[in-house]
Amino acid sequence: MGQSRTVVKIMEKSKKKSAYAKGLRDGFPIAMGYFAVAFSLGFMAKKCTLTPIQGFIGSFFTRASAGEYGVYSMVVQDAGYISVVVMSLITNLRYLLMSTALTQKFSPDTPLLKRILVGCCVTDEIFGISIAYPGYLDPRYTFGAFSISTPLWALGTMTGIIAGSVLPTRAVSALSVALYGMFIAIIIPPSKKDRAVCIAVAASFLLSWLTRNLDYIRQLNISSGTITIVLTIVISAAAAIIKPITPAEEV
């Protein structure tokens, strides 16, 4: 990291371009996975009477798999407008946490408009790679990843609505782990460096598995988005109490 920082300083002029290009590169596997996931979302949206153009616009500007899934299922139920807002709030509340974490990732001179635009780019995956960016976050990196992944997310939804299931399920199955592969690549290096992170990650795996497999939790029928929020808050708070960070560990 130290070395790459020096390199960045030397190549100050090409920095802007390279951060964007780096974002495009890291956004590529995200885009691949998005297309596969959005395709199946589109298939579901079609059953909920959405047109291809509605699917495209909804996906392009929302970019939230669980949230869109929830809202599209309400379209067909002819639910009230208030309940659509509540559904969007609950299924996407984790973005509030993610954006809060990102506030600490900006250099102090980052203008408000760029902060807001980065905020609009937040998805699980874009957040994941942005927070892993060495040093302060260069907004162009996030924009690069956004500009390749968002069109494919929207196109995937639209194609899914138009075509139904044409991609072989085996290909969809393989592509759908692309996102998780990236998550793994983000959480493992810091786990190797910091034992506290390693233990927090292991605890997350364990508790997440337990919430899906213990009968009395399954019976409560809590959405996976809510489970993610609750576990994130509980485990991160526990880790922060047990092992608070020292200034050296910070960005």
Binding site: R94, L97, M98, T100, A101, Q104, D124, F127, G128, I131, A132, Y180, F183, I184, I186, I187, P190, S191, A196, V197, A200, V201, S204, F205, L207, S208, W209, I227, T228, L231, T232, I235, S236, A237, A239, A240, K243, P244, I245, E249, E250
Partner: peptide, 16 residues
Amino acid sequence: SFLYYVPYVTLAVMTF
């Protein structure tokens, strides 16, 4: 400290 752990915990929870 809480925000330091949030990204890794949330991605781990979503992965497995």
